[in-house]
């Protein structure tokens, strides 16, 4: 089949970008979307043009590197699928598609379709962990965990940090991402000691990074390639409310006072 692609080309963060039209013939339905772009890039290189830059690595939907907008939808039209696993059988001959980077103040464009998502790392660094040093913790089975809790925790933990939730959100909010980590750890006994602190610190960092607020559109949930649920945001709100209301300053050292 033959496709027409309108691709956002932007040389660097400081230069303005624009849409450029490409004709892509000879697309096989068995190709993945990225393989189709590979084919285009090979042609561009041979013509002496700059190939289209897009982020990708594992190409099996788990590393979270890839992702851009196809016709205004993060990762394209197939639900629950990253763009590397989206196959061309989903499109038909003659389709005209618009490819754009995920857009948000917190995700500056680096080049073409490739963006900087380091804001996500900083949010995790603010509290998305259990503070346990490497060493000799107790035996793994000494902490029984209800199967359903472990399963729900796993559901939340399957977030790949691709940023589709931010891209889809009309407010460019990252609540689904943050709430997934808060739920992953908050649903497990290991996550309890830091639960309040985690909610306060991660949300404070979220705000630092200039993501928007949640207005419960639900676009993030629909766009998430891993099916992370809005329920997590409710859980995060609950954690935050409890933490904000019950917070007290840390007692100073000494204890005698």
């Amino acid at each position: 089949m033959r496709l027409t692609l309108n691709i956002w080309r932007q040389k660097s963060a400081n230069e303005p970008g624009k849409m450029v039209k490409y004709d892509v013939p000879g697309v096989s339905e068995h190709m993945s979307f990225l393989e189709m772009l590979d084919v285009l890039n090979q042609r561009l290189i041979k013509q002496g043009d700059d190939p289209v830059v897009f982020e990708h690595d594992c190409r099996e939907g788990i590393c979270g590197c890839c992702g851009f907008m196809i016709d205004g939808v993060p990762h394209g039209p197939q639900r629950g699928t990253t763009v590397c696993q989206l196959h061309m059988r989903y499109f038909k001959d003659g389709d005209e598609l618009y490819l754009e980077p995920f857009r948000a103040e917190a995700f500056p464009v680096v080049k073409d379709l490739l963006i900087d998502r380091s804001a996500f790392d900083r949010i995790i660094a603010a509290g998305g962990y259990v503070s346990v040093n490497t060493g000799s913790p107790q035996d793994a089975n000494s902490l029984p965990i209800m199967k359903q809790c472990a399963d729900m925790s796993m559901d939340a933990a399957s977030c790949i940090g691709c940023g589709a939730c931010v891209a889809a959100c009309p407010n460019a909010s990252a609540m689904l991402f943050v709430s997934a980590k808060i739920s992953h750890l908050g649903l497990l006994p290991q996550g309890q000691p830091e639960r309040d602190r985690r909610a306060l610190r991660m949300l404070a960092q979220l705000q630092e990074e200039a993501f928007g607020a949640c207005t419960n559109y639900g676009e993030c949930e629909a766009a998430c390639p891993k099916g992370i649920k809005l329920e997590n945001i409710a859980r995060m709100n609950r954690d935050y409310l409890k933490a904000a209301l019950s917070y007290r300053e840390e007692a100073s050292a000494g204890g005698a006072a």
């Binding site: 939808v73 618009y98 103040e105 889809a168 559109y217 676009e219």
Partner: peptide, 19 residues
Amino acid sequence: LNNFKARPVAYVKKAALVS
């Protein structure tokens, strides 16, 4: 203060999925 500033460059094309 938050939402309008969170995406200063608008999409050329943006679809609404479920909202």
